[in-house]
């Protein structure tokens, strides 16, 4: 197989891989949506570049001239035809790891990554967290078509607090782990959510001690899965049987908040646990 053909295959593989991840929506678990257009663009560009490469590498260089220079160099980058051991190794590096990773990758993190990154139970440890008491100077700028809300005359039917969230058919408030951690950081929200029946979906992390708790975690990313952090809520319930570590479960129970070293942490008591399908976005943004 020639260098020209291997190069074509490499560009096509990378282009098709990026395009497939984007088209199938699989990219959702890997990158923040801000980067999705970049991936789509790169996929298309690499496929185009593969075609252009086949055209360009088949053309004569067109630079033959007598420049009289004394340098030992090629006149214009030409496709190398011989396949040295180093070149073959380079193509192995270009093709094998990414193919293997695509096959092996489950599209979500397992227990090893969760434990190595440490379960976050304090919202202030979260990337992009802004303190609730930030001043108006920290507020994001208003868009051209936005107006400053009239808080003094806020309509009574406007949703806020627990009413902001939808409820499951049995009346439990549907939350993410991040919502409970945020509520824990705000006295008013703590008061509002405490003793409410809530339901959360996340990854099950087996108990690490005999205190009758396990963790329910949901990963959250800033840019890509490599920077994702697990946000965890303690669940007081027997460990579910038949659920693998970091398998997906729905937990429904009563929300409590407990002070631990000056930080309030949420916990779900009296919980029922059921196994569910993994959501489309295994990592939140």
């Amino acid at each position: 197989m020639s260098h020209r053909l291997l190069t074509l295959l490499t560009l096509l593989l990378w282009g098709l891989l990026l395009s497939k991840f984007w088209l199938s929506g699989r990219i959702d678990s890997y990158l923040h949506p801000h980067f999705h257009p970049m991936v789509a663009m790169a996929g298309v560009l690499l496929i185009l570049l593969a075609g252009l490469w086949w055209w360009a590498s088949g053309r004569p260089d067109g630079s033959s001239h007598d420049c009289g220079c004394h340098y030992d160099h090629e006149h214009g980058p030409q496709p190398r035809s011989a396949l040295s051991a180093g070149t073959i190794l380079a193509f192995v590096v270009l093709l094998v790891p990414v193919t293997a990773a695509t096959i092996v990758s489950p599209g979500q993190f397992g227990e090893a990554a969760v434990m190595n990154r440490g379960i976050v139970t304090d919202i202030s440890q979260l990337p992009t967290f802004a303190p609730p008491n930030s001043g108006p100077e920290d507020a994001p700028p208003l868009g051209a078509d936005e107006e400053i809300p009239d808080v003094a005359n806020w309509p009574e039917d406007k949703e806020e607090g627990v009413e902001y969230f939808t409820r499951s058919p049995d009346g439990a408030i549907q939350l993410e782990t991040i919502d409970l951690l945020f509520a824990a950081s705000e006295p008013a929200l703590r008061e509002e959510f405490a003793n409410q029946r809530v339901t959360l979906v996340g990854q099950y992390v087996p108990p690490r001690s005999d205190d009758g708790n396990f963790d329910l975690v949901r990963m959250i990313m800033v840019c890509c899965a490599a920077d994702a952090r697990p946000l965890g809520v303690k669940i007081t319930a027997p460990a579910p049987t038949g659920v693998d570590s970091t398998g997906w479960v729905r937990v429904t129970g009563i929300a409590r908040f407990e002070e631990n070293g000056g930080v309030f942490e949420p916990r779900i008591e009296g919980a029922t646990v059921e196994q569910v399908e993994a959501p489309r976005e295994t990592i939140l943004y």
Binding site: S29, P97, A101, G110, A113, C224, A225
Partner: peptide, 13 residues
């Protein structure tokens, strides 16, 4: 599997 998942995300970015 964690390695493969994180590795791909770095490449895609």
């Amino acid at each position: 599997s964690d390695f493969a998942f994180s590795f791909l995300s770095v490449l895609f970015e």
